[in-house]
Computed example of a mutant assay.
Amino acid sequence: MLHRVRSSGWVCLGGIALAVAAGCTQDHGVLGRDPSSGASTSGAGGGPGATTSGATTTSGAGGGEVEPPGPTKLTVVNGVGDHDAVRFCFLAYPDGTGAGVDPWPSAAAGLAFARAQAVEPLGSAIPEGTSLRAHVIAGDLRATEGLDCAEILALAAESAAPIVAAGLPVLPAPVFAEEKSLLLVATGCLGGEGHTHASEKEGCGDAYTIDTPTAGLVAVAMSRRTRFDRVSLQVAHASAATAVVQVELTPGRGGATGATLAQDLSYGAIAPFPPSTGFSVGDLGALEEVTIETRDPIEGAVTSSVPMREILASSDVPAADIGDGLGFVLVAVGAAPGAEQGGFWHPLTYSLVRANP
């Protein structure tokens, strides 16, 4: 038996505060239009070479640099840490009932944990010209096959339902009118039968209990800025169980020294801006041997270390596609760094996504 449909108020929306989750304190303004002066709100952190301008960046009227132009793109990541896969119902707000609306993705297997998928074309899943409320669905997703969103949400509301669903915070219509590369991450835990543990708050966040799940939403814009001879990197923090972290990258070659990608990165934030351009592909060495570490921002102690081979295995970006002149975002999802193993949650890991899919 899983829980009935729930409504969640946890959201971190880059630059637009709706119902701010605990720990979402950084305001990057990344979902707003670039100001005419060309100035951009800076994110926390500052990886190696972070202030180096991208080769494809244009200049604003005031001499500052702005994001390269491009059509609105949307990438969705499953960061729900206590289920293996989810589906979404993207409904118009406030009037969308889900009748006649197909769940996304179309395959009943859903989107696996830490996987990312671009919504192409945008109108295939996102209602046009209206605010949006996403509902995330987990559990026995086979039960959702052939159902529209109204039927799925009704099923989740039944007693002894095979699925659980949560309504996520509303995203205003202007978000999807921006010429940005948007990233939406469903976060936290949805709960369900057996989803309780002595260390559950390390897996799902301080507010979590089986009766008070912590499903939430992180919405940010990924930078399209690149440099022709470097790999551009950002980090998006979407682990609801983690407060503030420092994220470092150590190349996959002997004797290499790690470099900070993002410092004092809080839940819901993306950094650095401009992206870090401190490494070329050659500098990174053997990509599978690259490691991504989190450190306590005060004491500096390593709290987690995730090898790139694991990240690549759970992402849809093959090593062969990582090259100079391209941009990528590491999306932190799952439990808190160093959380106890063997619970009902997924440990901290990263989804590697293309900044400009």
Score class of each variant (00 low, 15 high):
L261V: 06
A44D: 01
P297S: 10
V119N: 12
L184R: 02
E179Y: 05
P68I: 04
V86G: 06
V175R: 04
E289Q: 15
P69N: 11
S37D: 15
G216K: 13
S181E: 05
L171N: 03
V235M: 00
D34L: 02
E179M: 03
G63Y: 13
L111N: 08
T75Y: 14
L141Y: 10
R133N: 08
G81T: 08
L13P: 00
A177I: 03
P121V: 07
L168K: 02
G252V: 06
A150T: 05
P162C: 06
Q234P: 00
L348V: 02
G54Q: 15
P121L: 07
G334I: 03
P347K: 07
F279L: 06
E128S: 13
T277P: 01
H83Y: 11
P172H: 13
P169R: 05
V30L: 14
P103M: 09
T303E: 07
A262P: 01
R133G: 04
V101F: 08
A339N: 07
P174H: 10
P94S: 09
V333I: 06
T196C: 14
P174G: 11
G191Q: 12
A118L: 12
R295V: 01
D84W: 09
T144D: 15
V5M: 13
P251V: 08
V66Y: 02
A116T: 06
G203N: 11
V331D: 01
A85F: 06
G9V: 02
A221Q: 12
I298C: 11
C149I: 05
V76I: 14
G62I: 02
K180S: 12
R33S: 14
E310I: 04
T187E: 04
G63K: 13
L122S: 14
L265S: 00
G192K: 15
D264A: 07
A198G: 05
L13H: 00
G81F: 09
G98M: 04
G23M: 00
T303W: 08
S8E: 04
V20G: 13
P162N: 10
P68R: 12
L2T: 14
V101I: 05
S36V: 05
R354I: 00
T25S: 10
T212L: 15
P94N: 11
P275K: 01
T250D: 07
L147T: 05
R142K: 14
G100S: 09
S266Y: 03
A215I: 02
S239F: 03
T226R: 13
Q234G: 00
L91H: 12
A259C: 04
G342M: 04
A207M: 12
T214H: 11
G63A: 04
E151F: 13
R115L: 09
D283V: 02
I292S: 11
G282M: 14
L18G: 06
G100L: 03
L141T: 08
G64Q: 10
L261T: 03
S106F: 07
A301H: 13
G285A: 10
L217P: 01
F88C: 02
T130V: 15
C149Q: 12
C204R: 10
G23V: 00
V80N: 08
G70N: 13
A114W: 09
A262L: 02
R33G: 13
I210G: 11
A256S: 15
T214W: 07
S53R: 13
G29M: 08
L182Q: 09
E151V: 07
W10G: 00
G343V: 01
A55N: 09
R253C: 05
